[in-house]
Design a protein around this nucleic acid. Structure first.
Length: 331
DNA sequence: CTGTGTCAAGTCCGT
DNA sequence: ACGGACTTGACACAG
Protein backbone atom coordinates (compact mmCIF):
# COMPACT_ATOMS: atom_id res chain seq x y z
CA UNK A 1 0.00 0.00 0.00
CA UNK A 2 1.30 3.40 -0.98
CA UNK A 3 0.20 6.84 0.15
CA UNK A 4 0.36 9.92 -2.02
CA UNK A 5 -0.74 13.50 -2.53
CA UNK A 6 -1.40 15.55 -5.64
CA UNK A 7 0.92 17.81 -7.58
CA UNK A 8 2.16 20.28 -5.00
CA UNK A 9 4.52 20.04 -2.06
CA UNK A 10 3.99 22.77 0.51
CA UNK A 11 7.22 22.12 2.42
CA UNK A 12 9.49 22.85 -0.52
CA UNK A 13 10.07 26.23 -2.10
CA UNK A 14 9.53 25.17 -5.66
CA UNK A 15 6.65 24.43 -7.99
CA UNK A 16 6.57 21.90 -10.81
CA UNK A 17 3.73 23.70 -12.57
CA UNK A 18 5.12 27.14 -13.29
CA UNK A 19 3.78 28.56 -16.53
CA UNK A 20 3.26 31.82 -18.38
CA UNK A 21 0.61 33.57 -20.41
CA UNK A 22 -0.18 32.44 -23.94
CA UNK A 23 0.41 36.03 -25.04
CA UNK A 24 4.01 35.84 -23.85
CA UNK A 25 4.79 32.52 -25.53
CA UNK A 26 8.29 31.88 -26.78
CA UNK A 27 10.33 28.73 -27.33
CA UNK A 28 12.93 30.08 -24.90
CA UNK A 29 10.27 30.49 -22.27
CA UNK A 30 9.11 26.90 -22.75
CA UNK A 31 12.65 25.61 -22.41
CA UNK A 32 13.34 27.58 -19.22
CA UNK A 33 10.03 26.65 -17.65
CA UNK A 34 10.19 22.93 -18.39
CA UNK A 35 13.75 22.82 -17.04
CA UNK A 36 12.63 24.43 -13.79
CA UNK A 37 9.51 22.26 -13.50
CA UNK A 38 11.42 19.02 -13.99
CA UNK A 39 14.07 20.08 -11.48
CA UNK A 40 11.32 20.74 -8.96
CA UNK A 41 9.59 17.46 -9.73
CA UNK A 42 12.84 15.63 -9.01
CA UNK A 43 13.16 17.54 -5.74
CA UNK A 44 9.61 16.60 -4.72
CA UNK A 45 10.19 12.94 -5.55
CA UNK A 46 13.33 12.93 -3.41
CA UNK A 47 11.40 14.46 -0.54
CA UNK A 48 8.71 11.81 -0.98
CA UNK A 49 11.20 8.95 -0.94
CA UNK A 50 12.85 10.38 2.17
CA UNK A 51 9.48 10.36 3.90
CA UNK A 52 8.16 7.03 2.67
CA UNK A 53 5.51 8.57 0.40
CA UNK A 54 5.66 6.34 -2.66
CA UNK A 55 2.62 7.52 -4.63
CA UNK A 56 2.47 10.90 -6.36
CA UNK A 57 0.27 12.72 -8.84
CA UNK A 58 2.47 14.62 -11.27
CA UNK A 59 1.20 18.05 -12.27
CA UNK A 60 -0.39 18.36 -15.70
CA UNK A 61 1.48 21.63 -16.11
CA UNK A 62 5.05 20.35 -16.46
CA UNK A 63 5.11 21.55 -20.09
CA UNK A 64 3.29 24.87 -20.58
CA UNK A 65 0.84 24.59 -23.48
CA UNK A 66 1.87 20.97 -23.83
CA UNK A 67 -0.99 20.19 -26.21
CA UNK A 68 -1.56 23.65 -27.67
CA UNK A 69 -0.69 24.16 -31.36
CA UNK A 70 1.36 27.22 -30.45
CA UNK A 71 3.91 25.02 -28.75
CA UNK A 72 6.20 23.64 -31.45
CA UNK A 73 9.26 23.50 -29.22
CA UNK A 74 10.71 19.94 -29.35
CA UNK A 75 10.59 19.45 -25.60
CA UNK A 76 10.33 15.66 -26.00
CA UNK A 77 13.85 15.48 -27.42
CA UNK A 78 15.34 18.48 -25.60
CA UNK A 79 14.37 16.97 -22.22
CA UNK A 80 14.56 13.27 -23.07
CA UNK A 81 17.44 12.72 -20.66
CA UNK A 82 15.72 14.57 -17.81
CA UNK A 83 12.48 12.66 -18.23
CA UNK A 84 14.40 9.40 -18.39
CA UNK A 85 16.33 10.23 -15.22
CA UNK A 86 13.12 10.98 -13.35
CA UNK A 87 11.60 7.73 -14.58
CA UNK A 88 14.69 5.82 -13.49
CA UNK A 89 14.43 7.41 -10.05
CA UNK A 90 10.74 6.47 -9.79
CA UNK A 91 11.46 2.87 -10.74
CA UNK A 92 14.55 2.59 -8.53
CA UNK A 93 12.49 3.57 -5.50
CA UNK A 94 9.43 1.52 -6.38
CA UNK A 95 7.22 4.59 -6.61
CA UNK A 96 3.92 4.86 -8.46
CA UNK A 97 2.76 7.97 -10.28
CA UNK A 98 -0.35 9.22 -12.03
CA UNK A 99 -1.57 12.28 -13.89
CA UNK A 100 -5.02 13.81 -13.72
CA UNK A 101 -5.84 15.75 -16.90
CA UNK A 102 -8.10 18.64 -16.02
CA UNK A 103 -11.75 19.38 -16.61
CA UNK A 104 -11.19 20.40 -20.22
CA UNK A 105 -10.57 16.81 -21.20
CA UNK A 106 -14.02 15.54 -22.19
CA UNK A 107 -13.87 12.46 -24.37
CA UNK A 108 -17.66 12.17 -24.66
CA UNK A 109 -18.35 15.73 -25.77
CA UNK A 110 -20.71 16.04 -28.73
CA UNK A 111 -18.25 18.56 -30.17
CA UNK A 112 -15.58 16.91 -32.36
CA UNK A 113 -13.22 19.84 -31.72
CA UNK A 114 -13.41 19.37 -27.97
CA UNK A 115 -12.81 15.63 -28.37
CA UNK A 116 -9.77 16.26 -30.58
CA UNK A 117 -8.28 18.74 -28.10
CA UNK A 118 -8.95 16.27 -25.31
CA UNK A 119 -7.13 13.50 -27.14
CA UNK A 120 -4.20 15.82 -27.83
CA UNK A 121 -3.98 16.59 -24.12
CA UNK A 122 -4.02 12.89 -23.24
CA UNK A 123 -1.30 12.23 -25.79
CA UNK A 124 0.81 15.02 -24.27
CA UNK A 125 0.39 13.77 -20.71
CA UNK A 126 0.84 10.13 -21.62
CA UNK A 127 3.98 10.93 -23.57
CA UNK A 128 5.60 12.27 -20.40
CA UNK A 129 5.10 8.87 -18.76
CA UNK A 130 6.43 7.19 -21.91
CA UNK A 131 9.52 9.43 -21.89
CA UNK A 132 10.07 8.42 -18.27
CA UNK A 133 10.08 4.82 -19.40
CA UNK A 134 7.33 3.85 -16.98
CA UNK A 135 5.14 0.81 -17.50
CA UNK A 136 1.35 0.82 -17.85
CA UNK A 137 0.75 0.84 -14.08
CA UNK A 138 1.35 4.62 -14.31
CA UNK A 139 -2.07 6.02 -15.18
CA UNK A 140 -3.95 8.91 -16.72
CA UNK A 141 -7.01 9.58 -14.60
CA UNK A 142 -10.08 11.28 -16.07
CA UNK A 143 -13.80 11.51 -15.48
CA UNK A 144 -16.38 10.01 -17.79
CA UNK A 145 -17.42 13.47 -18.95
CA UNK A 146 -20.65 15.35 -19.49
CA UNK A 147 -24.18 14.00 -19.29
CA UNK A 148 -25.86 16.17 -21.94
CA UNK A 149 -29.25 14.97 -20.79
CA UNK A 150 -28.84 11.39 -22.01
CA UNK A 151 -26.80 8.97 -19.91
CA UNK A 152 -26.78 6.09 -22.38
CA UNK A 153 -25.75 8.29 -25.28
CA UNK A 154 -23.07 9.96 -23.13
CA UNK A 155 -21.52 6.62 -22.18
CA UNK A 156 -21.89 5.40 -25.76
CA UNK A 157 -19.94 8.38 -27.11
CA UNK A 158 -17.14 7.70 -24.63
CA UNK A 159 -16.94 4.08 -25.79
CA UNK A 160 -16.88 5.12 -29.45
CA UNK A 161 -14.14 7.68 -28.83
CA UNK A 162 -12.12 5.24 -26.74
CA UNK A 163 -11.85 2.90 -29.72
CA UNK A 164 -10.14 5.66 -31.71
CA UNK A 165 -7.51 6.53 -29.09
CA UNK A 166 -3.83 5.85 -29.71
CA UNK A 167 -2.75 2.61 -28.05
CA UNK A 168 -0.36 4.51 -25.76
CA UNK A 169 -3.31 6.40 -24.29
CA UNK A 170 -5.67 3.43 -24.13
CA UNK A 171 -3.32 1.38 -21.96
CA UNK A 172 -2.92 4.18 -19.41
CA UNK A 173 -6.42 5.57 -19.25
CA UNK A 174 -8.51 5.01 -16.12
CA UNK A 175 -11.91 6.50 -15.33
CA UNK A 176 -12.93 7.84 -11.94
CA UNK A 177 -16.43 7.76 -10.48
CA UNK A 178 -17.55 11.34 -9.88
CA UNK A 179 -19.74 12.93 -7.24
CA UNK A 180 -22.68 14.21 -9.34
CA UNK A 181 -23.05 12.57 -12.76
CA UNK A 182 -21.42 9.19 -13.26
CA UNK A 183 -21.45 6.68 -10.42
CA UNK A 184 -19.46 3.52 -9.84
CA UNK A 185 -22.22 1.62 -11.68
CA UNK A 186 -21.82 3.85 -14.74
CA UNK A 187 -18.07 3.29 -14.66
CA UNK A 188 -18.65 -0.47 -14.44
CA UNK A 189 -20.75 -0.27 -17.59
CA UNK A 190 -17.93 1.61 -19.26
CA UNK A 191 -15.43 -0.95 -18.05
CA UNK A 192 -17.52 -3.76 -19.54
CA UNK A 193 -17.43 -2.03 -22.92
CA UNK A 194 -13.82 -0.83 -22.98
CA UNK A 195 -11.82 -2.68 -20.32
CA UNK A 196 -10.84 0.64 -18.76
CA UNK A 197 -10.06 0.21 -15.04
CA UNK A 198 -12.04 2.25 -12.53
CA UNK A 199 -10.16 4.66 -10.31
CA UNK A 200 -12.28 4.55 -7.17
CA UNK A 201 -13.00 7.74 -5.24
CA UNK A 202 -14.47 6.90 -1.82
CA UNK A 203 -15.81 10.40 -1.19
CA UNK A 204 -17.47 10.65 -4.58
CA UNK A 205 -19.01 7.25 -3.91
CA UNK A 206 -20.43 8.58 -0.65
CA UNK A 207 -21.94 11.50 -2.60
CA UNK A 208 -23.34 9.38 -5.46
CA UNK A 209 -24.08 5.65 -5.23
CA UNK A 210 -26.73 2.99 -5.64
CA UNK A 211 -26.53 1.66 -2.14
CA UNK A 212 -23.32 -0.35 -2.48
CA UNK A 213 -21.61 -0.53 0.90
CA UNK A 214 -18.03 0.79 0.85
CA UNK A 215 -16.33 -2.63 1.19
CA UNK A 216 -18.34 -3.98 -1.74
CA UNK A 217 -17.74 -0.88 -3.86
CA UNK A 218 -14.00 -1.17 -3.26
CA UNK A 219 -13.99 -4.78 -4.40
CA UNK A 220 -16.04 -4.04 -7.51
CA UNK A 221 -13.57 -1.32 -8.50
CA UNK A 222 -10.50 -3.38 -7.64
CA UNK A 223 -11.70 -6.22 -9.89
CA UNK A 224 -11.41 -3.91 -12.92
CA UNK A 225 -7.62 -3.64 -12.52
CA UNK A 226 -5.51 -6.29 -14.22
CA UNK A 227 -2.91 -7.23 -11.60
CA UNK A 228 0.16 -7.08 -13.83
CA UNK A 229 -0.89 -4.73 -16.62
CA UNK A 230 -2.61 -2.10 -14.43
CA UNK A 231 -1.21 -2.74 -10.95
CA UNK A 232 -3.25 -2.57 -7.76
CA UNK A 233 -6.33 -0.36 -7.50
CA UNK A 234 -5.55 3.33 -7.44
CA UNK A 235 -7.97 5.40 -5.43
CA UNK A 236 -8.64 8.94 -4.30
CA UNK A 237 -9.39 9.31 -0.63
CA UNK A 238 -11.17 12.24 0.98
CA UNK A 239 -14.07 13.10 3.24
CA UNK A 240 -16.72 15.77 3.62
CA UNK A 241 -15.57 19.15 4.90
CA UNK A 242 -17.76 19.64 7.99
CA UNK A 243 -20.39 22.34 7.68
CA UNK A 244 -19.61 23.06 4.04
CA UNK A 245 -21.25 22.39 0.69
CA UNK A 246 -21.82 18.71 -0.01
CA UNK A 247 -18.87 17.42 -1.98
CA UNK A 248 -16.37 19.89 -0.56
CA UNK A 249 -13.12 18.15 0.33
CA UNK A 250 -11.92 18.32 3.91
CA UNK A 251 -8.87 20.52 4.49
CA UNK A 252 -6.91 17.94 6.46
CA UNK A 253 -7.32 14.20 6.91
CA UNK A 254 -9.68 13.13 9.73
CA UNK A 255 -7.88 10.27 11.38
CA UNK A 256 -10.95 8.54 12.84
CA UNK A 257 -12.63 8.42 9.42
CA UNK A 258 -9.43 7.23 7.80
CA UNK A 259 -9.10 4.41 10.33
CA UNK A 260 -12.70 3.46 9.64
CA UNK A 261 -11.99 3.42 5.93
CA UNK A 262 -9.02 1.11 6.45
CA UNK A 263 -11.38 -1.32 8.17
CA UNK A 264 -13.65 -1.24 5.08
CA UNK A 265 -10.56 -1.96 3.01
CA UNK A 266 -9.81 -5.14 4.91
CA UNK A 267 -6.99 -7.02 3.21
CA UNK A 268 -7.41 -5.28 -0.16
CA UNK A 269 -4.17 -3.75 -1.42
CA UNK A 270 -4.60 -0.24 -2.90
CA UNK A 271 -2.59 2.91 -3.56
CA UNK A 272 -4.23 5.91 -1.93
CA UNK A 273 -4.12 9.49 -3.20
CA UNK A 274 -5.16 11.91 -0.46
CA UNK A 275 -7.29 14.72 -1.83
CA UNK A 276 -7.01 17.21 0.97
CA UNK A 277 -5.86 20.80 1.08
CA UNK A 278 -2.85 20.31 3.28
CA UNK A 279 -1.09 17.85 0.96
CA UNK A 280 1.94 16.09 2.41
CA UNK A 281 1.03 17.11 5.96
CA UNK A 282 -1.92 14.73 5.83
CA UNK A 283 0.09 12.17 3.90
CA UNK A 284 2.57 12.00 6.78
CA UNK A 285 -0.27 11.42 9.24
CA UNK A 286 -1.87 8.75 7.06
CA UNK A 287 1.51 7.05 6.69
CA UNK A 288 1.96 7.14 10.46
CA UNK A 289 -1.34 5.32 10.90
CA UNK A 290 -0.36 2.69 8.33
CA UNK A 291 2.96 2.14 10.12
CA UNK A 292 1.09 1.72 13.38
CA UNK A 293 -1.02 -0.96 11.74
CA UNK A 294 2.04 -2.48 10.02
CA UNK A 295 0.49 -1.86 6.60
CA UNK A 296 3.68 -0.16 5.41
CA UNK A 297 7.27 -0.82 6.50
CA UNK A 298 8.47 0.82 9.70
CA UNK A 299 10.25 4.13 9.33
CA UNK A 300 14.03 3.94 9.00
CA UNK A 301 16.13 4.20 12.16
CA UNK A 302 16.39 7.80 13.28
CA UNK A 303 13.44 8.95 11.18
CA UNK A 304 11.52 11.77 12.79
CA UNK A 305 8.07 12.44 11.41
CA UNK A 306 7.69 16.06 10.30
CA UNK A 307 5.56 18.19 12.54
CA UNK A 308 3.22 20.80 11.19
CA UNK A 309 1.65 23.92 12.55
CA UNK A 310 -1.94 23.80 13.76
CA UNK A 311 -4.54 24.09 11.04
CA UNK A 312 -5.43 27.66 12.01
CA UNK A 313 -1.91 28.81 11.26
CA UNK A 314 -1.83 26.93 8.00
CA UNK A 315 -4.23 29.47 6.57
CA UNK A 316 -1.54 32.13 6.68
CA UNK A 317 0.48 32.41 3.47
CA UNK A 318 3.75 30.56 3.53
CA UNK A 319 6.81 32.79 3.34
CA UNK A 320 8.59 32.15 0.10
CA UNK A 321 12.19 32.37 -0.81
CA UNK A 322 12.82 35.35 -3.07
CA UNK A 323 13.37 34.41 -6.67
CA UNK A 324 16.94 34.11 -7.75
CA UNK A 325 17.91 37.19 -9.71
CA UNK A 326 18.31 36.56 -13.43
CA UNK A 327 21.55 38.47 -13.43
CA UNK A 328 23.37 40.43 -10.83
CA UNK A 329 26.29 42.82 -10.87
CA UNK A 330 27.24 41.34 -7.51
CA UNK A 331 27.78 37.94 -9.16
C1' DC B 1 7.64 44.93 -2.79
C1' DT B 2 2.59 43.57 -2.30
C1' DG B 3 -2.21 43.23 -3.93
C1' DT B 4 -5.22 41.47 -7.21
C1' DG B 5 -7.56 40.71 -11.88
C1' DT B 6 -6.90 37.33 -15.06
C1' DC B 7 -5.55 33.21 -17.34
C1' DA B 8 -6.28 27.80 -23.47
C1' DA B 9 -9.50 24.68 -22.89
C1' DG B 10 -15.87 22.23 -20.55
C1' DT B 11 -19.79 21.21 -18.03
C1' DC B 12 -23.09 21.37 -14.48
C1' DC B 13 -25.36 23.44 -10.61
C1' DG B 14 -26.87 26.86 -7.31
C1' DT B 15 -28.13 31.51 -6.92
C1' DA C 1 -27.55 34.91 -16.74
C1' DC C 2 -23.67 34.21 -14.18
C1' DG C 3 -20.22 32.65 -10.71
C1' DG C 4 -18.18 28.72 -8.49
C1' DA C 5 -16.34 24.27 -8.50
C1' DC C 6 -13.42 20.94 -10.41
C1' DT C 7 -6.89 17.07 -9.11
C1' DT C 8 -3.14 21.53 -8.41
C1' DG C 9 -2.76 28.45 -8.36
C1' DA C 10 0.52 31.21 -10.74
C1' DC C 11 1.36 35.23 -13.83
C1' DA C 12 1.77 39.89 -14.72
C1' DC C 13 0.75 44.33 -14.17
C1' DA C 14 -0.62 48.32 -11.15
C1' DG C 15 0.47 50.86 -7.43
Amino acid sequence: MKIGYPCINQSLDCTSSSTFRLASYSDERVEQTVAANLACLQEILEYNVAHGLLFFRISSGIVPFGSHPINTFPWQTRFAAEFRAIGDYIKAHNMRVSLHPDQFVVLNSPSPDIVQRSIAELVYQGSMLDLMGLDTTAKLQIHLGGLYGDRDAAIGRFVATFQTLPEAVKVRLVVENDDRLFSLQDCLRLHAATGTPILFDNFHHECLNHGEPMPEALRLAAATWHPTRDGVLMMDYSSQSPGERKGKHVSSIQEDLFRGFLRDLGDLDVDIMLEVKDKEASAHRACGILRELSLVPAAPEGYVAPTFQPAAELAAPKPRKPRAAKSSTQG
